[in-house]
């Protein structure tokens, strides 16, 4: 039960990253490999906001989100937009290029530095025991912030005009354009929102597992992507569901089987789900046509 809570906490962090993957994939069919590194940049922005500039925690999260959103839009404009008409693999390779660039550029000494850094705790850890389960205030904050952001995202996508436009673009670019939607703009907004969520995820990851380094984004990025596939890629609630399953499975394997087999378990589940339900848990099966 205790591990279940820990797993859910990890799952919510994955969910924040997975949402960006799923939204971007839903709209441009691109596996945005650089997304995990945007998450890393978010963690570092939060780090500097908390340590060097002594900003309060909520401001640090907002700063990381805004910074990452700008980065996300910038990456999209420079690296992906020119390739929108090219083969999909070209954009994928560019995404890998951006990912490597962010990792190694961040490792330079005058940027973030190639070393591990201890993440500051913005407040002392307190733990509460309710019915035999220990919950720390960190866990409560991670869950609260993540849930708040996801509610905000759901409202945005379902209730605003921009959200409606996003759904239209993910359905069909050309028809959306005919309806007078500025498709390029909507794609940029999608990248921005996804990146902002990843940025928030980075800060939450930092305070929950207090160590960051320039390559920290690779594994959570891949796992979040897998969570998105698990839930059904392109489906926003699916990303959350997939991420929580991933988080719980990972924690349970780590504790009850072996911590070295943690990743193997996660990817084993992925392959099983793909074989049984290739479109993901919440995905709908589409008929094929020539």
């Amino acid at each position: 039960m205790q591990q279940l809570i820990n797993g859910i906490q990890l799952g919510f962090v994955y969910a924040l990253i997975a949402l960006g993957y799923t939204m971007v994939y839903g709209i441009v069919r691109l596996i945005n490999f650089a997304h995990g590194d945007v998450f890393m940049v978010g963690a570092y922005l939060g780090f500097f906001a908390l340590t060097s500039w002594h900003l309060p925690f909520p401001v640090a999260i907002i700063l990381a989100m805004v910074g990452c959103a700008l980065l996300g839009v910038f990456i999209e404009r420079v690296a992906y937009k020119p390739l929108r008409r090219a083969a999909r693999i070209s954009a994928l390779i560019t995404a890998i290029g951006v990912s490597l660039f962010l990792e190694y550029f961040s490792s330079l000494k005058f940027v973030f530095g190639p070393y591990f850094r201890a993440y500051p705790r913005p407040f002392p850890i307190r733990t509460f025991t309710i019915a035999g389960i220990t919950i720390s205030n960190i866990q409560i904050i991670v869950l609260a912030v993540a849930i708040l952001l996801m509610i905000a995202l759901t409202i945005f996508v379902n209730r605003t005009k921009t959200g409606l436009a996003m759904r239209a673009v993910s359905f069909d670019h050309d028809t959306a354009r005919l309806m007078g939607i500025d498709v390029d703009n909507i794609i940029s907004i999608t990248f921005g929102i996804g990146a902002a969520l990843a940025g928030a995820g980075g800060v939450l990851y930092g305070i929950a597992y207090p160590q960051i380094h320039p390559f920290m984004g690779i594994m959570p990025g891949l796992k979040a992507f897998i969570a998105a596939v698990l839930g059904g890629i392109g489906i926003i609630p699916g990303a959350l569901l997939g991420a929580i399953i991933m988080g719980i499975v990972e924690k349970l394997t780590e504790v009850y089987i072996s911590s070295t087999l943690r990743d193997a378990a996660a990817f084993g589940i992925l392959i099983l789900v793909l074989l049984i339900r290739p479109s993901g848990i919440l995905g709908k099966k589409r008929d094929e046509k020539v």
Binding site: R29, I31, L222, F225, I226, V229, T260, L261, D263, A264, F267, G268, L270, I271, L274, L275, P278
Partner: peptide, 28 residues
Amino acid sequence: LPILRLKSDYLGIATLGFGMIMNVLFKN
């Protein structure tokens, strides 16, 4: 035999997963 039934990106993800599992096996 089982995973080649998957298409495009899904096959990519399944092979990625297989690669990760092999990596864990090499490590152990």
